[in-house]
């Protein structure tokens, strides 16, 4: 078994990373990259996320890939002449619109106007699917939510300790994060961050439901339009119910298919494919 200890990846949203302003020097005398301390107190040098490729830009020696997660963007840099010749992550791995899981190490750089940016150097990137993304989003939101609650507790008392927080049911990691957060980010607006994260997990959940149902509804309309007059709304609805979805989702799906020009309302409450 590998004996060298691998720094575990943290599951954080891009917004939590973007708002980070603290770096902790590496312990191993500068050999490794420094840890970033995020507003939620997460001590991170490696991230894992599932997101969609928003853009791929070939800039010569380097390919820059932007990933969108529900709160913002992660930026990846892939060097053509990789310092890691064994690295399996090559620019060709990425194409726009793809849903992927990425594990990578963070690097930090300052722009000329002094702003700090975070880059992810991918160690692992592979195709994933929207359901897995939904899982990642809800779990990462759960992790962030627990940390923000621990921070709220830590703020209540001047002498809060990790043990106090653990006695309230927080894990050792959550408690340490909360103490780091109150020390490092006394004036941070947690409400904004959490609204962005909670909103994202709710909306991405709804969107994924719609995305998943779109294909099924389209196929149903195509196959069941026997007389050429289109499918009755009630029939589509009862089909949708057999796959466990409700009317509200169906309405969103019909809207989405309609505005994408894939179906149209051939008569009142009758739908036909174009």
């Amino acid at each position: 078994m590998e004996t060298r200890k691998r720094e575990p990846s943290k599951w954080i949203f891009s917004r939590e990373l973007r708002d980070s302003i603290i770096e902790e020097p590496a312990e191993d005398e500068g050999r490794g990259k420094p840890f970033v301390i995020t507003p939620l107190g997460t001590r991170v040098k490696r991230v894992l996320f599932v997101g969609n490729v928003a853009s791929v830009n070939d800039e010569g020696t380097i390919t820059k890939v932007t990933f969108s997660d529900p709160t913002g963007s992660f930026y990846l840099s892939i060097f053509k002449e990789s310092q890691f010749p064994t690295s399996r992550v090559i620019p060709d791995t990425f194409s726009e619109g793809q849903c992927m899981i990425v594990v990578g190490r963070l690097s930090t750089f300052k722009s000329q106007d002094g702003r700090v940016f975070f880059n992810v150097n991918p160690e692992l990137a592979r195709d994933s699917d929207p359901r897995v993304m939904k899982y990642w989003v809800s779990r990462a939101a759960h992790i962030a939510r627990r940390k923000s609650l621990a921070i709220r507790e830590a703020m209540k008392s001047e002498s809060a300790t990790a043990e106090n927080l653990m006695s309230l049911g927080y894990t050792a990691e959550e408690s340490e994060c909360a103490l780091r957060a109150v020390r490092g980010y006394p004036n941070y607006n947690y409400q904004q961050l959490m609204e962005s994260i909670e909103g994202s997990s709710a909306s991405s959940e709804a969107n994924i439901e719609v995305e998943q149902l779109k294909g099924q509804v389209y196929a149903y309309i195509k196959e069941n339009d026997k007389d050429g007059k289109g499918c009755l709304y009630e029939d589509i609805l009862s089909f949708v119910k057999t796959v466990g979805k409700d009317q509200a989702v169906l309405d969103q799906v019909l809207n989405a298919l309609g505005s994408a020009g894939e179906i149209y309302e051939s008569a009142l409450k009758r739908f036909k494919i174009i």
Partner: peptide, 14 residues
């Protein structure tokens, strides 16, 4: 099965 894993967290919104 994946959706089920995701749903484990969806009821706990603050």
């Amino acid at each position: 099965a994946i959706e089920q894993m995701a749903r484990a967290y969806s009821n706990e919104m603050e």
